[in-house]
Simulated assay, not measured.
Amino acid sequence: MNNPTWLTVGEGVQRRILAYGPELMLVKVAFETGGIGARHHHVHSQITYVESGVFRCTVGEQEQVLRAGDTFYAAPHVWHGVECLEASVLLDSFSPMREDFV
């Protein structure tokens, strides 16, 4: 299922669901410079691919700067978040799907 609608989810942050089924979801997230993906945790496994731009990313206690082509994994219940250093796009995959997003 593809949803072409962008949803504003924070200042300078928009999200669009690309596809999902019960066990997997793919979401595109666009950030303006300075946009924040606030630290949070959830029951889902998450793999994120940096499609473009630059982020400061924190997963658990580890912080690193990620650029286009980089990825990170956030295990269930692990705190994680990002700060956009340069206008960017992320592709987030979740397992199982994020029911709270639909």
Rank of each mutant, 00 (worst) to 15 (best):
G69F: 10
E11D: 11
P76N: 10
A30P: 03
V13E: 07
V27Y: 00
V65R: 05
T33S: 04
I47M: 12
T71D: 09
W79I: 09
G37A: 13
V13C: 08
R15W: 06
P22E: 12
A30I: 10
T48Q: 09
F31Q: 03
F31N: 04
G35Q: 06
F94K: 00
G53T: 03
A30H: 13
S93N: 09
A74E: 01
P22N: 14
Q14M: 11
G12S: 09
G53C: 05
T33H: 08
H80L: 04
P76S: 12
G34S: 11
R98H: 14
G35I: 00
G37N: 05
E23A: 15
Q62S: 14
L18V: 13
Q64R: 15
S88P: 01
V89K: 02
C84L: 02
V9S: 07
R56T: 13
H77A: 12
V54W: 01
E51W: 02
T8N: 11
E63A: 09
G21H: 12
Q46T: 09
R67Q: 12
V89S: 02
G10Q: 03
V50A: 04
E63M: 08
N3A: 06
A68I: 04
T5A: 10
A19D: 07
V27K: 00
V29I: 10
V82L: 06
V102R: 15
Y20F: 14
G37C: 04
V82H: 00
C57L: 09
V78A: 05
T71W: 07
V78C: 05
G81C: 03
V102E: 13
R16K: 14
V89T: 01
H80S: 07
G21R: 10
F101V: 11
H41V: 09
T33M: 10
T33N: 08
E11N: 13
E86F: 08
E51G: 07
W6D: 06
P22I: 11
L26D: 11
V89C: 04
G81V: 08
S93Q: 05
L85H: 05
L18Q: 07
C84Y: 01
P96I: 01
E99W: 15
F72I: 07
G37I: 02
S45A: 14
V89D: 02
R15L: 06
A30Y: 09
V78W: 08
Q64M: 12
S88C: 12
F55V: 11
V102Q: 15
L24F: 15
L26Q: 14
E63V: 06
E23F: 13
W79R: 06
V54R: 07
F94V: 03
V50G: 07
K28G: 03
S93R: 07
F55A: 03
E23M: 14
R16H: 10
L66T: 05
S88I: 09
E51H: 13
R15A: 06
N3K: 04
G53E: 00
E51F: 03
I36F: 11
T5M: 11
Q64P: 07
A75V: 14
Y20E: 11
E99G: 14
L24K: 05
V59C: 07
T8Q: 10
A74K: 01
F72N: 02
S88G: 12
I36K: 10
F101K: 06
L26H: 03
D100Y: 09
R98T: 07
S88L: 06
T48N: 06
D92P: 02
A87M: 09
V59R: 00
V9T: 07
